[in-house]
Computed example of a mutant assay.
Amino acid sequence: MRLRSLLFVALATAGLAFAQTPVPAPAAKPAALSDNLPIPDAPAPATSKAWLVMDYATGEVLAGENVDAAVDPASITKVMTSYVIAAEMAAGKVKPTDQVMMSENAWRSGGAGTDGSYSGFEVNQAAPLVEMEKGMVVQSGNDAAIALAEHVAGSEAAFAQLMNAYAKKIGMTRSHFVNPHGLTAEGHVTTARDLAILGRALIRDFPEAYSYNKIKELTVGPITQPNRNLLLWRDPSVDGIKTGHTSAAGYCLMASAKRGEQRLVTVVMGNTSENQRAVDSQALLNWGFRFYESHKLYEAGKPLAQPKVWKGEANQVAVGVSVPLLVSTPRGKYDRLKASMDLPKSLEAPIAKGQKLGMVKVALDGKIVASAPLVALQAVEEGGFFKRLWHSLLMWWQSV
């Protein structure tokens, strides 16, 4: 709230009319000794092929290396599988109570007789979809992933087409999936950035499906297996998300934690051991929470300004942002943000609701750190003939 008052004050001094009177800025507090010190480098994993720290609220990569390099996703692939299942469920195409068969193909390709992780569901037996999905998520069951793919799309190949379609839809521009489990296959690739985008999308779009990732252990029949994400036991703020390992991919971990209102997502790919991927991920989370903070600057649909409109039934139009405007800043520098609005000097009716009219930009120390289109929050129809004529004369008079 304090920042919003400061932003309103800054914008008001630029001559913009606001929907509410800005609160006077409070007296500046003395600068802390650390305010002007640079943020130390992130604790880069020594052996990883790629890694990053992403702010969940904004999607901004706070630090990383090789974030767009092609990597083998291993079992982190199953996060994509979870996303597809949740999306298909939301569309009404499958239900959590569906009986999913552990086919012989799924059992032979990904069951206990293979070298990979398995769920323990019996061959040629069915289980509710939600339980089969937990077997895939918690125990990283390759067999469960295959069974789910067959149930949702008929075959692994058809399911992979859904995976790629949804990946494109959520902004994963450098990924291509050929199977639902992540065992090494030609053409099955992603990037650290794309995986973070995927994790962020699952948390945002399907929180119930995401919640399965914090289950610490699962029992299927006589077999109890633990979640391989060691951070679930080491850091109470960690509530997901997925591990992966193959000889080609190395040890991988996408983790997410929430402390207070702030959430971060980390990705560590190609590490040397199960413990090291957890140690490196923990260090990145601690660094991100220590040195960065995220804030919501403006709510969607709330008026930020009411510029004058010519030739309309109404003489003003409320403008604001269509989605919340969020920002990531170095911790302690929130109050140094400055906002400005770029709106045309003259607006004429008709104006459609949602029409882009300008931009709002937020800067920190002269650098733009967030921006969003300013849109009309309601429609303004054309005024009557005489009002349009009168406004035309006034506009001409002001221009000479």
Rank of each mutant, 00 (worst) to 15 (best):
W233D: 15
A144D: 11
K214Q: 15
Y210R: 03
G187V: 03
E122H: 11
M132A: 08
N142Q: 12
E150R: 07
Q125T: 13
W107M: 02
Q99Y: 13
P207W: 00
E156P: 02
N213M: 13
E133R: 10
P222A: 07
E217R: 11
L129N: 01
G111I: 02
H188K: 07
Q125V: 12
E217I: 09
R193L: 03
S155W: 07
L148A: 05
S103E: 14
S175V: 02
W233F: 08
A147D: 00
R108E: 12
Q139M: 04
Y118C: 11
L148D: 03
T224V: 00
A160C: 09
L218R: 13
G199C: 13
A153G: 08
K214G: 04
S140P: 14
G141F: 01
R228T: 07
T224P: 03
D235R: 04
T114A: 02
V130T: 09
M132V: 15
G141E: 02
A147F: 00
E186R: 09
L198H: 02
G199R: 04
E131V: 12
A157T: 09
N142A: 12
N227T: 11
N229P: 04
N124S: 09
K168V: 03
T184Q: 10
G116Q: 08
R228E: 05
F206N: 11
E208G: 13
R228K: 12
A149W: 05
T219Q: 09
S119N: 07
H188P: 04
V138Q: 12
G110K: 05
T190W: 01
R200S: 10
S140T: 09
E133N: 13
N213E: 14
Y118W: 15
H151K: 06
D205M: 11
N229S: 06
L162T: 06
V138E: 00
K214N: 07
S211E: 14
K169T: 09
M172R: 06
S155I: 06
V220T: 15
K216A: 01
T173L: 06
V189R: 09
S119T: 15
A196I: 13
D115P: 05
P207I: 01
L202R: 00
T191H: 07
P236R: 13
M163T: 03
G120L: 02
L202W: 01
S237V: 08
E186H: 12
R174M: 11
E208F: 12
L129I: 04
A144L: 04
L232I: 11
W107Q: 10
R228P: 03
A167Y: 01
G111N: 07
W233Y: 13
A185V: 06
S155M: 10
D235I: 05
F121Y: 08
Y166P: 00
R200P: 02
Y166R: 08
T224I: 02
F159L: 04
M101G: 13
S103C: 14
G221I: 08
M172T: 10
V130A: 05
N213L: 06
P128R: 05
P207R: 00
G171R: 08
G221R: 06
